[in-house]
Amino acid sequence: MLVVIMSPNGLFDEASLPRRSTDDSVVVVSFVPVDDVTAIVLHRPTGLSERVVRAMSRTAVAREMLRLTPLDSGVRFLRAARRDARVRRALADADLVVAPERDGALAAWHAARALGRAGRNTVTMFGYPAARAAIDRITA
């Protein structure tokens, strides 16, 4: 079973998804390196947009407003993931796609749609408990 985790902040450790067999593998798609697992580290946007995001992230109101714009961190993660061929390859083979955090959900949602159109029956879950339950059902 191949599990692809869409987590901009690299939220993954051994307790997140206990491995069932040696055939199981996990790939974390992230903006940051992740220990002890295969990780696809995406190029984080830099330059003016990053400076705007940092400035607007200082207050709660500005953060909420930012979420309505294309500078929303979920959108930026989606764009970076779409541009990366390694992500496309991993998703094409995935049995399960997991978004453990809010900012990974949009990329996981688009992956679910694309995989559905390609005739793949990939399960897409939000949160690790839901992912663990999905694995139980898939392997039952």
Binding site: L68, G74, A99, A105, H110, M125
Partner: peptide, 17 residues
Amino acid sequence: QNDISTWPRRRARHAEV
């Protein structure tokens, strides 16, 4: 509801709204 494939797009894109 944790199955992301059942979410409408606006939930995935604008979760808070």
